[in-house]
Design a binder for these strands. Structure first.
Lengths: 204, 204
DNA sequence: AGTATTTTCCTAATAACATTAAGGTTTTTT
DNA sequence: AAAAAACCTTAATGTTATTAGGAAAATACT
């Protein structure tokens, strides 16, 4: 029993060690320049042993965003729960996501810089989860439109493009610049401008 | 004389043939999955001959965006010349860029999907030209602010982030979805929303 | 023209790397 | 304690980027 427990732990531990080594190395040196030897050394194994845990280098790369994004998805609904009003939800979404990125810069770096290179990204688990993350945004804009908080003719998909595009752009630059400043700089004024774009024009 | 001319032509021709082969293959199969043999076969040479024209695979990848982006930069000033008003310039910028992307989808694909992977992207020629492309946008927003066409407290850098982020997002998705629809779908309503975000609120 | 030089290209190394083969050692189960 | 399973290792194997070394063709020079 106790042995079984400790064994399972150690197995999980090894797997995690490999993932964390890969994460650090991919984020530091990029996917191409990181070798399987690098990763397995860092994790304290031989190269061959790594193949008992993962199918290969691509598989290992995929695993990192897989874990991160599905955890984000789990957290998101929790975070939006109980918040009233589309603008308030939109605000929470933005601040929440930026904080999550700031908390997991290595995961974010891999998602933003190395994932899209994968030819069949559209067929991955990650993409389907990212779409779910986005769909919450679409719901928020739809709610805003219906409640009269936002423009009556607001296209929720267009609003999402502006929102996500802006977020992603800010994050990409932050990652490229090696996270040398805070992601929250200017966030308030960015948010205000986007609200101006979406909100109902009461004065007309 | 005649020989010299034809020789220079053929030299340029070979170089171009290599670049175009690489462009097609990188865009089709991705950078990693494209081999030097693939490229040189396609261009009608041996692998080794390719190294007389380019330093290596990375160098070849870099070359493609280099050429495209610097040509874009040359064209941009021409295109904005004579257009009056910040909103009109902003509109022209958006439509111009989208058309250029639609006209050179292979270049765009390489820029958008494979370039940021490069660890020292920030130190490349391309990045410095991209920054110049962006700086025209900042100028436009600054002009709009000063002329009263846009909000008096509009931060031009923030406006640029929204504008570029939105554009890039739409383009990335279009590229990932294999250019299966028109980039100009919804462009009008996207533009209108962005204008609402930036423009002076006359009714207040 | 005829020789020297440069350009362009090729066939073979070379070396780095991902992935597999084959099997040993330790742990768990019975 | 024997059998099975889990975990790990060293030594291939095969692919691929890059170099070496030099042939063939074009160009320049006399």
């Amino acid at each position: 029993m106790a042995k079984n427990h400790s064994k399972n732990n150690s197995k999980e531990h090894t797997r995690d060690r490999i993932i964390n080594s890969a994460k650090r190395l991919f984020a530091e040196q990029g996917y191409q320049k990181t070798t399987i030897v690098d990763i397995s050394r860092q994790a304290g194994l031989s190269e061959a042993a790594l193949y008992d845990y993962f199918q290969g280098k691509e598989d290992l790369l995929q695993m990192i965003p897989d874990l991160w994004v599905s955890e984000l998805l789990r957290d998101l609904e929790e975070q939006l729960f109980g918040i009233k009003g589309a603008v308030n939800k939109m605000r929470k979404y933005l601040w929440w996501y930026m904080r999550r990125v700031e908390q997991s810069p290595l995961d974010a770096k891999i998602v933003y810089l190395f994932l899209k290179t994968n030819a069949n990204f559209l067929n991955t688990e990650v993409y389907s989860n990212v779409k779910k993350l986005y769909s919450h945004l679409v719901d928020i804009f739809e709610e805003g439109r219906k409640s009269g908080e936002m423009k009556p003719d607001l296209d929720p998909l267009v609003a999402r493009d502006i929102f996500v595009g802006t977020m992603d752009h800010i994050i990409s630059r932050w990652l490229l610049k090696d996270m040398s400043y805070s992601l929250f700089d200017n966030l308030e004024s960015i948010f205000e401008l986007m609200v101006d774009a979406f909100k109902a024009n009461n004065s007309q």
